[in-house]
Nucleic acid binder design. Structure first.
Lengths: 199, 199
DNA sequence: AATAATTATTGACCGCGGTCATTTTAGATG
DNA sequence: CATCTAAAATGACCGCGGTCAATAATTATT
């Protein structure tokens, strides 16, 4: 029969999360070692894995929470009326997503939930981001020949492309913001239909 | 002083690559263990790492080679004249890129070279793919208000988005091809410019 | 309060990628 | 052929994520 969750459990989990946050703030995400976290939290290694499926699951929690904070900021903004405003609005979130190569790679891996069962925090933020984006794009001075939902997916695709290229050895020339703005202008404000010959 | 490369070296590397290929064909990419590869190749573990920086570097080689094969096929095709033809042309490559979650993640990680110094085989294929794509899109019945190079980047971004969503727990509904076709129609054949009010 | 049934914690242990001081081998030199 | 030297190969070792049978702590039952 389902017994209630023990307070001990909540306390231990909180201590683990706090310890992890400390380690990250001191050394960054990539440098985090599970052993270091459990040592700080004063628990055994096995306890960690009783609370988180694996190290990535902890990262999913922590990184997802940070992303959610940036989405809160975004949702407080008035709908942007230009590509430049969109880019500006997205910048804080994007900056965080690219703060470390390790973080970006992990976000990509978890952007669509790994297993069918558990959709994690990061996957949720992508969902949320898509919805906010669709809301924005349904009202503004942007193209209307495709659905706002599709426009939003495109914005996500281009944002990821721009972020990925900012890590890229080739194409390290153009700054991230300029590239994203170029993409979004072409995506959200197309000028003509067909090629040389009219349609 | 620079002595010539010993034949022993080439032979050992070839044996390692062959052994790795065998293991993969039997158990898939994700299941590959370095220890198993060196055992089959009849060399010590350390030897492996004298030939490949790490396990990922081996994967970069092998996966990059496979991708290059598919690109050869693509380059033999006549320039497609519709979105459906583009999707059809890209399918074999895409299918391989998504044959395993592990493979897709690794490709993403290596799509823009990891370190500034060494651009690996996978990164090269992305470059090549972009160029082939730009060539295709500069002639056909596609939009001409942005450069073929930019169009090509968009196709890559949408292809990656479509592949990623095919692994996604949410959005596992629409089949991969249909989604990509929808993206590319919106990207390559936009109908109007602004929203409700004309521009 | 004593006992039973669950749940949480522990830490020795494992798998596997990667390292490095040491040894072996290939090939140039006298 | 003997000798010397740079390159290649070796395998014991390490770091670190993750497991699991055993133990401790908590809650329900009498």
């Amino acid at each position: 029969m389902n017994r209630p969750i023990q307070q001990r459990t909540l306390k231990t989990r909180a201590r683990l999360l706090e310890a992890a946050t400390e380690v990250i703030s001191e050394a960054g995400y990539e440098a985090l070692r599970v052993e270091q976290v459990v040592q700080r939290a004063g628990v055994a290694k096995g306890t960690f894995f009783a609370h988180f499926r694996d190290k990535d699951a902890l990262m999913d929690q922590l990184i997802g929470a940070r992303m959610d904070g940036f989405l809160d900021q975004i949702d407080r903004l008035p709908p942007p009326q230009s590509v430049d405003e969109i880019v500006a609005a997205l910048m804080p979130l994007m900056s965080f997503m690219t703060c470390e190569r390790y973080v970006f790679d992990l976000i990509l891996r978890y952007s669509g939930a790994a297993a069918r069962a558990d959709i994690g925090p990061i996957a949720m933020t992508f969902e949320r981001h898509g919805q906010s984006m669709a809301r924005w794009l349904s009202g503004g001075p942007f193209r209307s020949d495709v659905s706002p939902a599709l426009l939003a997916e495109g914005v996500q695709a281009f944002a990821i492309q721009a972020m990925a290229l900012s890590f890229c050895a080739l194409h390290a020339d153009a700054p991230f913001q300029a590239r994203l703005a170029e993409y979004l202008r072409a995506w959200l404000l197309p000028v003509s239909g067909g090629a040389g010959s009219g349609r």
